[in-house]
Design a protein around this nucleic acid. Sequence first.
DNA 1: AACAAGTGTTCGTATAGCGAACATTCGGAA
DNA 2: TTCCGAATGTTCGCTATACGAACACTTGTT
Lengths: 251, 251
Amino acid sequence: MRSLARGLAVIETFDRDHPSLSLAEVARRAGVSRATARRLLHTLVELGYAATDGKRFSLRAKVMSLGYSYMSSLGLIEIAQPVMSDLAAEVHESCSASVMDGHDVVYVARVPSKQRIMSISLTVGTRLPAHCTSMGRVLLAGLPPAALDGFLADGATLSRATDRTVVDPGQLREIVRRTAEQGWAMVDGELELGLISLAAPIRDGAGRVVAALNISSHTSRTSARTAERDLLPPLLRAAQAISRSLGHERA
Amino acid sequence: MRSLARGLAVIETFDRDHPSLSLAEVARRAGVSRATARRLLHTLVELGYAATDGKRFSLRAKVMSLGYSYMSSLGLIEIAQPVMSDLAAEVHESCSASVMDGHDVVYVARVPSKQRIMSISLTVGTRLPAHCTSMGRVLLAGLPPAALDGFLADGATLSRATDRTVVDPGQLREIVRRTAEQGWAMVDGELELGLISLAAPIRDGAGRVVAALNISSHTSRTSARTAERDLLPPLLRAAQAISRSLGHERA
DNA sequence: AACAAGTGTTCGTATAGCGAACATTCGGAA
DNA sequence: TTCCGAATGTTCGCTATACGAACACTTGTT
């Protein structure tokens, strides 16, 4: 169904650096003819997903109801949110939950702390590469073996975010194996220097890893040692509490 | 462009109570023939927005990148988020930002507090009726007169959430007028009994109201009087700080 | 076991959507 | 200012796309 695919491509064409676009710009960026872009955009305007002043086009808040369809269908959020708020308040650090999508983790819930940690600001919907994030490694550890093999097969995707990032598939496989074994992951400066984060799996009733929960801090406040001592126990407790609410018996 | 419209309708078909649907269920709920639903769903699966086990269909995390396109194109979030975290930490209550869409406000950023306030759990993407929320009234007050008239014209949309909800268009117009005058809004129990909330406008460089910022609390902790005394000043300061970052000179 | 009611799939046809061709606007240069 | 060129935006006849009636198949009931 061509026009659906193209319409979705048009929506994803808009971003931080391109909040409003002309018809021709949309056509170029989405890879469609101007005539097609015109028809797609007019449909989106008609439906209330986009707005235009006659010259330029921009998205309207209604597109959020699309992402929200997924969020609410996940069900996880309303269970996790209160637990996450408690956790964030207890450790005074920001707390996030994410799910796997392709080679990335996608944030589905977040309780930011007062302190800023990262250079970029994380929000619900943000994507980060799985291989160099704590939540990514927990989620990779929960993948069926075949899916993990597939992930490691195309090594092109293992981007080097910092000079500490593990980009060797063999090395990553070993890390994922150990993550599965110990039931949590720690990443220190592999996504961004100075950023340290811990993650633990959230399991559903069938015992499958459906999401990851994490706490992030800065090395100026927290060393790897103190993170494991002070942050890990509350994190594991919270992750297990959420899992239990999802019907997972054994923690 | 029919198939785009229908495809988006299919996505919105999934929700909390229907996280996975059969082909026929989707067809029924989206108002299309089964054949059409089949083609749409297969396209969505192909593109990675949906998944299927051959029998039932569900959304994948990729649909969040659609909503995220809007969020990032807004630009507001990365400016507002740190200010909101500070504000939430200062007053120990949850803090949210929203924009107008049709007759609703849509949450675009949120810092939940430890305490639960509402019966339902609010997340980014949540919609609430504008007429009985503090943010809604602030946003209505920022609307061009013609748009406000339009809003008040169709009184059918002024749903009665509690017995305190103002549903009379004339009364609401007066409230909106006073909101515009004083530069903030308070709503006490009109959305949900026991819930009290304050909101202030966020303005862009051109002075237009682009979003609303709010603090919510519970009447068991906070009376209308103490809310105005303790919560309002920090809220106004935060809203003005964000507005200033957006290029708004006069606060 | 036979039926009924519902679900998923196929296929010829109509029409929705395609892009080449046509207007229109915009921004320099003289 | 006026002209020109290069871009943008719009139209329209043809074709492939997407439609739904008709066909299989599955499921649960008598």
